[in-house]
Design a protein around this nucleic acid. Structure first.
Lengths: 133, 133
DNA sequence: ACAAAGTAGGACTAAATTAGTCGTACTTTA
DNA sequence: TAAAGTACGACTAATTTAGTCCTACTTTGT
């Protein structure tokens, strides 16, 4: 499967919304506008916040807003904030926890997969929220 | 999720094996050598065959062999042969069956996702089985 | 001729992942 | 102080992927 999760889809739509509005918008507002399940979007927004992509304002006039210009938020970062599995294979772990994969010893495609991973990340890294506008 | 399926992993390992051996190899042999569940690998091989990447020989001295040089088999093709979902999102369908996606109307990221899809495919298309050797 | 070693492939079960829901607590402004 | 927000953990449901089982067909060597 090479499909983006709904979390990422929703996140991108929300970021696009924030970029377009250029100001603070609430989860409720985005959810209604884009037809995204509220609870799910709420968590997505929280993840985007804890990754430092957006900022939150609580209270009655609260909501979320972009923390950077659309040009400086790339998709690779968004995916990393929202997806569980960011790596193409199990053996490619950012933190070096290779031991997880059962086939670590017999596997003979680790290095090429690593190379591919980098290229894919590069592809995503080159695209920014600005390109969604 | 941006993770390759086991089918693809196994398929790549098998293609690497075939490329290395340069001749006919059986599913049993590859399965044992790489520690891949036999039944699953068998289906992967069948898929690779029906996609025209490898050829099969039945009977007692049978097995599978590459149909092309390793340099001319790219990963994009392998993924397409082995994965259910080849597209980054539901709305990107090779055959134009957009109607599947519930959000088709409200969705505002279709075109950029299409662009991303093409770039990812390009990344995979540039890598060949020869790079696994 | 026939048995062994293969591929071919459908149907099914189990496991893992993702999507989505629910409930409750905390925060701020009008 | 109430309304409108964010924050977040726990849970359930749905979907997808992985893996297994079983039976049939094909070819080569003896």
């Amino acid at each position: 499967m090479l499909r983006l999760s709904k979390r990422v889809e929703y996140g991108l739509m929300a970021l696009q919304y924030l970029a377009k509005s250029g100001t603070v918008a609430t989860t409720r507002e985005i959810s209604a506008s884009k037809n995204i399940p509220y609870d799910l979007l709420a968590k997505v927004m929280q993840s985007l916040k804890s990754e430092g992509i957006i900022d939150s304002y609580q209270g009655v006039r609260g909501g979320y807003a972009l923390l950077f210009s659309p040009e400086s938020i790339n998709l690779s970062r968004v995916v990393k904030a929202l997806d569980e599995h960011t790596t193409i294979t199990e053996c490619i772990s950012p933190s070096g926890e290779h031991a997880t994969c059962q086939m670590f010893d017999t596997c003979t495609i680790k290095e090429p997969m690593n190379k591919l991973q980098l290229r894919m990340e590069e592809s995503m890294g080159k695209m920014t929220i600005a390109e969604l506008l």
